[in-house]
Nucleic acid binder design. Sequence first.
DNA 1: CGAAATCTTGACATGAGTCAAACAGCGTGG
DNA 2: CCACGCTGTTTGACTCATGTCAAGATTTCG
Lengths: 224, 224
Amino acid sequence: MERLSRTPLFAGLSGEQLKLIDRRMTRLSWSKGQFIHTAGEPARHLFLLAGGRVRTLQPAPNGQQIVADLLIPTDLFGRIRTGDQAAYTETAEAITTVCTLQISDEDFLQVLSDHPEVGLRLLADTSERLSHARADVLRQSTTSVAKRVAAILLRLTSKFDWDQTAGAAPVHLPLTRTDLAGMAGSTPESVSRVMSRWQTEGIVESGRGWTVVLDSHRLAAVHD
Amino acid sequence: MERLSRTPLFAGLSGEQLKLIDRRMTRLSWSKGQFIHTAGEPARHLFLLAGGRVRTLQPAPNGQQIVADLLIPTDLFGRIRTGDQAAYTETAEAITTVCTLQISDEDFLQVLSDHPEVGLRLLADTSERLSHARADVLRQSTTSVAKRVAAILLRLTSKFDWDQTAGAAPVHLPLTRTDLAGMAGSTPESVSRVMSRWQTEGIVESGRGWTVVLDSHRLAAVHD
DNA sequence: CGAAATCTTGACATGAGTCAAACAGCGTGG
DNA sequence: CCACGCTGTTTGACTCATGTCAAGATTTCG
């Protein structure tokens, strides 16, 4: 409920309205490693991450699961089923102990008719993501592996940083070389080469399964 | 109005409801080469293509305009402005004489509260596109230029084919090598090499500024 | 301490970008 | 109506980034 009011999606709604929405949502807890939903499974719920860390995985044609994104509290995920059946396109996995709020498609439809502006905002948010994704598609193949990895690290670092009240502690990204390679459409070896160079230059620090960006300014200036 | 009823977005609404929505929409005509909206300009309208062909262009970092998609009647484009200001992320250009219906953000909000299921369907549609785009991002960098070009040609051919009652006339795609190169994140030269091979193999036929897919089955089986 | 997984580094092959030149479709003006 | 020129296409030669294969080193955890 406290989380609800901090969620951009519901910003600007009165406490009364929030209470109504909150009543329609179900609270659930998950432990590390549990799958909140799985790609291919019929989509039934929209989730709001209330606490903990979640990663989303996309199934690749060859069968492996590629890390698509890391989520922080107030992020929305999951999917609403509409008339024609739809399945989740991604898998969501808890990587810490996690608390979620979920809402079913029927209930969400109800919220939508009670608060049309929520629908509009969700639509705007989704459109925003869509145009980002479109822009990524263009950048992806034009740009070098180094730039792509840099972009990923910067995006996630600023997202996590924002979540934990900016710059207090260094941001630990829970990603292996293989995870990063998947996100950048590259290979663990290539990512490793790039990261070792950055490590000697003092731009990042990393170990087995984690990475910390030390100098985001220089990382943003990376050319190859 | 006839177009409205054929639009997936409004499918299942009664004639009465359609009439209400229709009353809120404005009809406009455009001639070849005109820009319906321009990237960066404040977003004010959602457009429904009623007749003709439109292409959308994405500005690339280097300043050139990359062809993002070709639209057919019943396609939606444009963008709704929400509380925080938003701009169009793409440019839409008429490539034939075009007829559009447009709706302003205020009016759309009204439609949304009158017909919440429309909002839900639009949201579903946008989510669908988003997950396609996400999947593309993954495929893009992993896969060869040939496969990417093949995928683009197949997608557009089936889209256009569906528009003109399947297979009656061969589908002429109005794309230059440069356009395709942009869409595939490649170069005109590379696209040209791939296409010449396909042309000698009888899979496609093409000329200056157009391409026709002759054998979509073999094109789908392309490996490199 | 040992085993399994992850990371690093090297050598090599190759797809595709770049540069450059010649060619061909298509509109225009004499 | 034809020649000219603009623009898009093709092809070749070369280079380079990056994927692939293969050891070897390192970290983490039981």
